[in-house]
Simulated scan of single mutants.
Amino acid sequence: MNFLIICTAALMLVFPAFSVNASSGKGQQPHARAFELPGHDAIGKPGVGSSFDRTIEISIRETESGYMLFEPDAIQIEKGSVVRFLIGNTGALDHEFFLGSFDEIAKHQQWMREHPDMQHDRANSVSIPRGQNAELIWEFSDMMNLEFVCLIPGHREAGMWGVIIVHDHLAPKSKG
């Protein structure tokens, strides 16, 4: 019993944004709200309640050979844009769309391996049950490269990841 208390206290020190509902195992996850925490990579902010500049449709599917894919898996977005992602899961499995920095996702992927039943319920992620659709609205305020992934254990390894490149608006070149 004392070992459990010590381990829980240690986790709280390492992951202060984490709290667990002991009866269900669900709660806040480390890194899921990293965009709000000092010292973490700034990845923008939720665009809920904002009008959006662009809608990007993303399809999720699995292949017969076992790959799990986001289509498209590479997206360019102009800095300052508010984007509405419409994510459709046409696959046979439940998936998620988790947006974050490469570093935060690597850390969170390890956490998910250790806690495979954890569910995300945060502004930078949505769960998409098979055959259903979900929406995520995000404001991209800085130039950066981000990743979107499915962190259900084994899914990223099967190909469920993509890249978002946030760039400055480039004026068209003048002819001359």
Rank of each mutant, 00 (worst) to 15 (best):
L99G: 09
S125I: 05
L136E: 01
S101F: 12
N133A: 01
G131Y: 15
Q110F: 04
A9N: 07
Q132L: 11
S81R: 10
M68S: 13
F97M: 12
N133M: 07
D53C: 01
K26C: 01
F35R: 06
V48C: 01
F15D: 05
I152R: 12
A32Q: 14
P16S: 04
R84G: 00
I87G: 12
T55E: 14
D168V: 06
F97S: 09
I137C: 07
N133S: 11
L13F: 15
K107S: 10
T8A: 03
G176D: 00
R54D: 03
G176V: 12
F140V: 05
A9L: 13
G80C: 08
N2R: 04
H95N: 02
M144N: 15
F15R: 14
D168Y: 10
N124F: 09
S81G: 05
I43P: 09
A92N: 13
F70N: 02
I60N: 11
L93F: 14
I105N: 12
V48H: 14
I137P: 13
G176C: 05
S59G: 04
Q119L: 15
A92S: 14
D121K: 13
Q76K: 11
R54H: 12
L99S: 05
V14M: 00
Q76E: 15
S141K: 11
S24A: 09
R84M: 05
V149Y: 04
D121W: 02
G159L: 10
P172M: 06
E71A: 01
N133T: 03
R33V: 10
R61A: 02
H40G: 03
L11G: 13
G131A: 05
L69A: 01
A171F: 11
A134D: 02
T63H: 12
M112W: 06
L37W: 03
I5K: 08
Q119M: 15
S81H: 12
F52S: 09
H155W: 13
F35C: 07
Y67I: 01
H31W: 13
I56G: 07
F140D: 04
G162I: 01
A134E: 11
F52K: 09
L170H: 13
S174V: 04
Q76P: 06
M160N: 00
Q110H: 13
S65Q: 09
T8I: 00
G44M: 03
S125R: 07
H31I: 00
P72S: 08
G39T: 05
R130T: 08
G159D: 03
R130E: 13
G91V: 07
F102S: 14
Q29L: 11
K79L: 01
I165N: 15
M12V: 02
P16H: 09
G176P: 05
R33H: 02
A106F: 00
G66Y: 05
H155C: 11
A32I: 02
I137D: 00
T8F: 14
L146C: 13
E36F: 02
A17Y: 06
L4E: 12
M143T: 15
M160F: 10
K173P: 00
P72V: 04
R122W: 03
V149L: 01
G44D: 01
G66D: 02
G39P: 08
I60V: 15
G44Q: 08
M143N: 10
N2A: 05
I87A: 10
W111P: 00
R113N: 12
I56K: 04
L11P: 03
F102G: 14
G88W: 06
E57W: 03
K175D: 01
S50A: 03
M68Y: 15
P30L: 04
G91P: 12
D53H: 08
G80L: 01
R122P: 00
A171G: 03
Q132D: 06
